[in-house]
Design a protein around this nucleic acid. Structure first.
Length: 274
DNA sequence: GTTGAGCGTT
């Protein structure tokens, strides 16, 4: 999706990609194009969007034809407030096809010396290997904002190979912080609970029968963790089950069957019910 | 109507 309406990247043989971060979710390529085009020839403007929702992810890619123009745009637009948000402009490091990138320049097999250094740093990736969470809502300290602006000064009036250390810190920081919560969450075992329940409903037909008389069964086994809530939902569920015409339980049972991943391991554990 | 770490499409 390019601003020019073409499919895919137009020509990335010798273009310089700029990464624009911290843009508003409502900002589109059309809004960024005139802004960046003032400082040079913009070849393409692309804003990655979510596959599911289709909303902008909050960053965009601007391709310049000349490095000097791209550099100028960075100095001029980095930290600029756009649409009420302070955007951050910097050279893109990861190519669209995992191509080699020199401070924003995309080259296929022309450069080779600087490329080695990046491999050592671990910048290179085959694409799709980077684990990134799509969760937009996450607690974080806003104190990292000012630090970003600080590194911008390194680029001023310099087009040499300066400006790589800033990424190391940022990368390490985000890495350790992003992985820690994710792993812990996965270990919590929030997935086991719904799985086990699905099996219980599937393997135990008596559950459906009990639905007609939940009192005979253990009220604690109700799906509602809150007793107060269970009481409210109880009459509703009871009425539906008694009618015997409610397709709801049937559909849920069938779905659970398809979702069951390891029914055997669960079936062998009688303690699961207690 | 919202959110806010981060690196990309036919």
């Amino acid at each position: 999706m390019s601003h020019f309406g073409r499919s895919g990247p137009p020509d990335i043989r010798d273009t310089y990609s700029l990464l624009v971060l911290n843009i508003t979710f409502r900002t589109s390529a059309d809004d960024l194009f005139p802004l960046f085009d003032r400082y040079g020839k913009v070849v393409d403007v692309f804003i990655p969007r979510d596959r599911r929702t289709g909303d902008s992810r909050g960053f965009a890619f601007v391709r310049y034809k000349h490095a000097e123009e791209a550099q100028k745009a960075i100095e001029r637009l980095d930290g600029k407030v756009v649409d009420g948000r302070e955007i951050m402009v910097q050279f893109a490091k990861y190519g669209p096809n995992a191509e080699s990138i020199d401070r924003g320049r995309i080259s296929f097999s022309e450069t080779k010396s600087p490329r080695r250094s990046r491999h050592r740093d671990g910048y290179y990736r085959k694409g799709g290997s980077r684990s990134r969470s799509r969760s937009r809502s996450r607690s974080h300290s806003p104190s990292r904002s000012p630090s970003r602006r600080g590194r911008g000064a390194s680029y001023q009036g310099k087009l040499h190979d300066h400006g790589r250390s800033y990424r190391s810190r940022s990368r390490s920081l985000s890495r350790s912080r992003s992985r820690s919560p994710m792993r812990k969450r996965s270990r919590s075992g929030s997935q086991e609970r719904p799985r086990r329940r699905s099996y219980e409903r599937k393997e135990s037909p008596d559950v459906k029968r009990d639905s007609g008389s939940p009192k005979g069964r253990s009220p604690s086994l109700a799906r509602s963790p809150s007793p107060a809530k269970a009481g409210t939902a109880s009459p509703v569920h009871k009425g539906s089950s008694r009618g015997g015409r409610s397709p709801s339980p049937v559909q849920r049972t069938r779905r659970s069957h398809s979702r069951s991943l390891e029914p055997h391991s669960r079936s062998r554990s009688p303690h699961s019910e207690n």
